[in-house]
Each structure stands twice: as structure tokens, then as C-alpha cells.
């Protein structure tokens, strides 16, 4: 069986590389630096099933992005990652269609469980 393709969208190399370490064994990974790159990558690659996306990013914030992804690519599941631990942001993300919400510093087991639940 082919590996599920996941798009990781975060502007920080440290976070991208951490997620690579956690997920590279079980999943096929694609990376994006910002919102625009994320949209382009989903457009080009319809095999992307899951997106892990940071809420705070330059140019366009993650919640804005989430709205567009859910509108233009309803088949793609989105998990939000954030350094802000406020209930309001989590609630807003879930309301906009995110399926889960991971708080930094991310826990490898939580990331894996969260993704497995979606597959």
C-alpha cells in the first residue's frame, strides 16, 4: 500500500525538520514555507490527503489559509499546529473545519495518534 501523503506547512525549519523526524518513516512528506506555497502544492498534487499547518505564519495566517483549503479542497483533512494555547483559537480552528489541534512544543506520540485517527 502506498504511503499517505502529508503536507507540512510551517515557516520554521526547526518545526519542519522535527515533523520530518516524527513522520518520515510512515508517511510521504511534502513541505511548504508559507500559505501561498501550500495552496500551490495542493493544486499540483491531488494525492495530498492531510495538511499539518501552523496557525502563525508570515503573509497569511493559518486560520485564513484553513478557510480557503476547506473551501477549495474539501477532501483534504487539516490539523492545526500552534504555539498559542488559548481555547478561543482552538475553537475557531475546529469551527473552520480543522479536525485536530496540536500545541507546541509538539509531542511525537500525539502527532502520530492524531494522524492515525484520520486514516
Amino acid at each position: 500500500m502506498d504511503k499517505v501523503k502529508i503536507l507540512i506547512c510551517d515557516d520554521e525549519e526547526g518545526v519542519r525538520e522535527s515533523l520530518r523526524l516524527i513522520l518520515e518513516k510512515d508517511y510521504e512528506l511534502v513541505f511548504a514555507n508559507d500559505g501561498e506555497e501550500t495552496i500551490n502544492k495542493i493544486k499540483q498534487d491531488n494525492e495530498i490527503k492531510i495538511i499539518l499547518m501552523d496557525i502563525k505564519m508570515p503573509k497569511r495566517d493559518g486560520l485564513n489559509m484553513l478557510k480557503q483549503v476547506k473551501r477549495d479542497f474539501p477532501g483534504v483533512s487539516v490539523i492545526m499546529i500552534t504555539g498559542y494555547q488559548t481555547a478561543e483559537i482552538a475553537a475557531e480552528a475546529i469551527k473552520l473545519g480543522a479536525l485536530d489541534y496540536i500545541v507546541k512544543p509538539i509531542d511525537s506520540k500525539q502527532v502520530l495518534t492524531s494522524i492515525r485517527k484520520l486514516i
Binding site: 526547526g14 522535527s18 523526524l21 502563525k56 500552534t82 504555539g83 512544543p105 511525537s108
Partner: peptide, 19 residues
Amino acid sequence: AGMAHEIRNPLTAIKTFTE
């Protein structure tokens, strides 16, 4: 809130790489 973001981002990398 800003502190949380500014410190949790690098902590993510430190935590995962150490793990």
C-alpha cells in the same frame, strides 16, 4: 502569547531532535 510562540517553536525542535 508572543513569548509562548517564540519559545515553543524552538522548543519543538529541541524536544523532537533530542527524542
